[in-house]
Design a protein around this nucleic acid. Sequence first.
DNA 1: TCTCACACCTTTGAAGTGG
DNA 2: CCACTTCAAAGGTGTGAGA
Length: 845
Amino acid sequence: MAAAARCSSEFQMCENVAKQRSVKVEMNKERPSSGHVFHFQTQVQRHMEIWGLCEGLTIRSRCRWDYTASVITHPTAPPPSIHTYTHMGRVAKLCRSEKRSSGASRQSVLLETSFRIQPAPNTFVARSWMNFLMRDPVIQGSSMAYHPFIPHRGPEFAMSAMLGHQPPFFPALALPPSGSLSLPGALGKPIMDQLMGAAETGLHFSSLGHQAAAAHLRPLKTLEPEEEVEDDPKVHLEAKELWELFHKKGTEMVITKSGRRMFPPFKVRCTGLDKKAKYILLMDIVAADDCRYKFHNSRWMVAGKADPEMPKRMYIHPDSPATGEQWMSKVVNFHKLKLTNNISDKHGFVSSTNTILNSMHKYQPRFHIVRANDILKLPYSTFRTYVFPETDFIAVTAYQNDKITQLKIDHNPFAKGFRDTGNGRREKRKQLALQSMRSYEEQQKRENGASDDSSGEQAPFKCFGQASSPAVSTVGPPHLKDFCDSDEDSDDESKDGHHIKDGPDSSKISTTTEDGKDHEASPAKGHPFKNSDTSSRMRDSSGSRTEKSQADSRQSPVTVISSTTRSAEDLKSPSLDPPKTDECSRSIGKDSFMPLSVQTDSAHMGHSHLHNFGFPTGLTGQQFFNHLGSAHPFLLHPSQFNMGGAFSNMAAGMGPLLAAVSTAGVNTMDTASMASSPQGLTGAPGLPFHLQQHVLASQGIAMSPFGSLFPYPYTYMAAAAAASSAASSSVHRHPFLNAVRPRLRYSPYSLPMTVPDSTLLTTAMSSMAGTGADLKGDGIVPVSPGVTLDSTSEVTSHSSTISSGSVSMSPKTCAEKDAANELQSIQRLVSGLDSNQDRPRSGSP
DNA sequence: TCTCACACCTTTGAAGTGG
DNA sequence: CCACTTCAAAGGTGTGAGA
């Protein structure tokens, strides 16, 4: 305690005063008051000695600086409100320019921060978290929390080895048993409380070491998640039919430097949550395999081994945390998540909402439900992970598959200008088509004796569409608002409009799919979601549920096998054309695409996966990695979270929290010691008390998502994500991953010594979507009670709109143009080229 | 394979208008 | 005040040329 207290320091930013200890802080700020632009420049010069932690230790000055700064707007500020940066090196610069929208206007925020760090001999800064709290667009208050003494040895361990020198630049870091072990969960709230208080009084810079140290000593129990009322979350993918439609053709997602939204948008609807309990909903995108692809001969083929994986982030839904009732009342939309191939924007950091992907690689979005009323508890909470195989995609910088392009154009409202009815550059296509069909057209004209503008324009397209671009349509797309709606869509849809609104669209899309058959009888249209949910389960799961239970009973706990054991076949499997991909997924993993519990047994994690985690291959064989046998922790690093919501203030405290968690990420503890009781662990030789604690707490591995791209591990990989990532990525390769496990109850304080299950990440895998009607009907087969993927609402809307869709087609025949389109659609249906492409557009006159 | 400017589109929110 | 309309700006699309 005393040691910890000695670490504390206080300093006022405004006065550039270093008050105590050997901490010197100099900060300059500029705050132009004009307009809504806020320019903040900070320079921090620190000479630090970590008294408490370093007492009795000689720490070489050859240390590395890992600065993680979280920029957090005030909770009342509009989203996006959190930007998380990780910096390493002597000088780091933060700069961000972002336009935001608020209730009144859009504001630009430019934050520029630079740190100059000069470590004194025998000094090290283990880890720092810089939390900027911005009051409002004009920034009336700001504060920084600086937590200087959280030991940091996770990624550095790997990094050091990567650089060819011995890792332990934090050798045998021993803390007093009572000492400054940082227990992440206890830190955030006090820190944020102080931050918020500071924010009230204007710019303020304070070190919260003392408070943090005090917080460290909180009883572990305070970090325990509250007693949970049993819940049974079910998640179903919205616009599933659309996803399936894209999936059938081998979905591609364009990634750009500035970030591109996903289309179809990733939206889910949750049920079965505890209404009163609070949940945090997250999404991330993980590599589906370790292959690089190329589009050759109109098909996606494996083009080699995957490039080093980009740092992955968890995107926390901006509304998090919210009560189960709130979540269930709306569609959870992650449309703000953007895909990019740019690890840093022009300002040198990654947008908080961007997820970095590698082009020509396959990815799998995942959805996580975490029951926690506080972001700070995230690392200690249960992760329920839901994977919808139909949502996987290949990231591209430019579309490769024309069919996908056409689908996007036809369904994405923002691409309306490229539809045949538009005047965009597709006119050129028209001209091409016109040229190629000129003779036919002229012949028709001659036969008809008179020319019809519309028909003259349509005829070529009809043929063109049939011939080479079945998706070409002159008919408007479904109501795409559903697929590209705003935040409020959740609420709007929740009113029940969702199904009605979404239904027709879905039905239009799915009318001709095999899945549609499954939905015909659904009576749930117009019913409250829960009802429809139930009914769908009765129906949708009548078969699937049986299957589910069967699966439950017949399947064994999943283990993620090391990818190194993959056969050449496995590697080749991804080589497919779009349908083949589908097929492959089905054949390999589809049967296994039941709600999936993934045992993240490190013993099964091979180099490939570790590689994905960013560890140098050479490290994967180290003892360190062999200690994960019991389970992978949920290592959550703030920099991994993309948070757009106002809740972000809470995340400010996550820095230390997560850092502390990560402390345990890399440890030298062997499995045996881990298997012992916590008390026993305290005495584990060679393992500092705090590390032991963290091992207990998180049993974490820390990883550098940057992989070998960067010498420094910029961020941690959430173990949860990593584990499930491995799981999900393995899903495609390991048919036996379909085993069903109870959801993972991850608690750092209740070690599942002999029951690895308890620390397992539960991954619910929805069964492969639609294309495999033989497998699971509509594609989602709930297997695990906790992870049932309910597609009821879609089923409902589906069936209900099937008829409406077909009915709506008739009126269109009044117009000749529409008739042509109609014919075109019918032809497509008949030909089966693009059965899902029909766009009856019932609302059109 | 990637980047960029571009045209075209939707979305958003402020301003204006009328009851 | 409220509801509605109008307008402009922001921002999301795919395209296609060029690197």
